[in-house]
C-alpha cells in the first residue's frame, strides 16, 4: 500500500512538470496547447541525440536538450501561434493540434518508430525497510522537486515571476504598468520548454523513448491541469500528484493498462461537479 503511494507520488511528480508548463502557458495566453505532448517527445529525442549519438553524459545532454527545446518552442510560438493570437481560442486549439501532428511525425521521419533508451548504467533499487525505490524513481524525485522549487522561486520572488503573474492576472493593467507582454510570453514558453524537456528525459528514463510517448501523457497532463484549475500553475502540481496516486491506487481494482481511463473518469467527474478545478478558483471563459 505504502509502495503504491510512493509509486503514485513519483508518477504524479513526473506529470507535474508538463502539467505546470501547460497551465503556465494557459494562464498567460488563455489557450490550451495540445502540442505539449509532442514537445515532450521532441525534448526526449533531442536529449537522446546528445546523449547517445554524441556520447555526452546525460545531465549535460539534458541541459543542452532543454535549451534546444525551449528555442524550438519559442520558434513555434513565433511562427504558428503568434499570427493567430487575435483569433478565437478555438482556432489556436486546432492549430496546436496541427503542430502536434507535424512535430510527432518529424520525430518519426528522423528517428523511426522503434523504441530507444538513454545511455545510462543500470543500478540496483534502493530499499528503505519494506519500500523499494529504484534509481530512476530517485532521479525523478530529486529532479522534479528541484525544478519545482526553482519555478516557485522564479514565480514568487523575482521580477520576471511578478511580470508573469501580472499578465496572467490582468493583461491590460500589466501593459499599463510597463510590462512588455511579448517578453513575458517568450519567458513563459522558455520555462515551459525547459520543464517539458526535463519531463521528456524522465519519462524516457522511466520507460522508453518512442514517438508516441508524449501523446500518451496528454490526457493525464490535461487532467492534472484541469484538477488544479487550469489557470493556476502551482495548483497543477497538486493536481498531478492526485492523478499519479489515483492511477496507482486504481491498479488495485483495474488492470494497469487502464490508467488513462482512470484519468478520464477523474476529469469527467470533475468537469461535472467542480468545473473550476479542485484546488483552483473559478475561471470563466471570455
Amino acid at each position: 500500500m505504502l509502495q503504491l503511494l510512493l509509486n503514485g507520488a513519483v508518477t504524479g511528480l513526473l506529470l507535474s512538470l508538463p502539467a505546470l508548463a501547460l497551465s503556465l502557458s494557459f494562464s498567460v495566453l488563455r489557450f490550451a496547447n495540445y502540442a505539449i505532448g509532442s514537445y515532450l517527445t521532441c525534448g526526449a529525442y533531442l536529449v537522446y541525440l546528445f546523449n547517445v549519438l554524441f556520447g555526452w553524459p546525460l545531465w549535460i545532454a539534458a541541459s543542452v536538450g532543454a535549451l534546444g527545446l525551449a528555442t524550438l518552442v519559442v520558434a513555434i510560438d513565433y511562427l504558428a501561434y503568434r499570427p493567430l493570437r487575435k483569433r478565437s481560442g478555438v482556432t489556436l486549439l486546432v492549430a496546436s493540434m496541427g503542430v502536434a501532428i507535424a512535430l510527432e511525425n518529424l520525430v518519426r521521419l528522423f528517428a523511426g518508430n522503434s523504441p530507444r533508451s538513454f545511455d545510462v548504467a543500470v543500478a540496483r533499487p534502493l530499499r528503505f525497510g519494506g519500500l523499494r525505490l529504484n534509481y530512476e524513481q530517485l532521479t525523478i524525485l530529486i529532479t522534479v522537486l528541484t525544478a519545482l522549487v526553482l519555478v516557485w522561486i522564479i514565480f514568487r520572488l523575482t521580477r520576471l515571476g511578478r511580470a508573469m503573474r501580472a499578465v496572467a492576472d490582468n493583461p491590460d493593467l500589466a501593459a499599463v504598468r510597463g510590462i512588455s507582454r511579448g517578453q513575458v510570453v517568450a519567458s513563459v514558453w522558455i520555462i515551459s520548454g525547459v520543464l517539458t524537456a526535463i519531463a521528456g528525459v524522465l519519462v524516457g528514463l522511466d520507460a522508453n523513448i518512442e514517438p508516441q510517448m508524449g501523446w500518451n501523457y496528454l490526457l493525464p497532463v490535461f487532467t492534472a491541469a484541469i484538477l488544479g484549475g487550469i489557470a493556476s500553475p502551482m495548483a497543477a502540481v497538486a493536481g498531478a500528484l492526485t492523478i499519479g496516486i489515483a492511477e496507482e491506487l486504481a491498479t488495485l481494482v483495474m488492470p494497469p493498462h487502464y490508467r488513462m481511463i482512470v484519468a478520464f473518469l477523474i476529469m469527467a467527474t470533475l468537469l461535472l461537479v467542480r468545473p473550476w478545478g479542485l484546488f483552483g478558483t473559478r475561471w470563466v471563459t471570455r
Binding site: G98, V99, I101, A102, N105, L109, N113
Partner: peptide, 24 residues
C-alpha cells in the same frame, strides 16, 4: 512507406497551421 507516411502527416500538420493563418 513509414517515411512517406511521416512526410505526409508533417504536411498535414503544418498545412493545417499555415491555412489557419493565411486563409482563415
Amino acid at each position: 512507406s513509414s517515411e512517406l507516411a511521416a512526410i505526409r502527416l508533417i504536411l498535414v500538420g503544418a498545412g493545417l497551421v499555415l491555412l489557419l493563418i493565411i486563409k482563415p
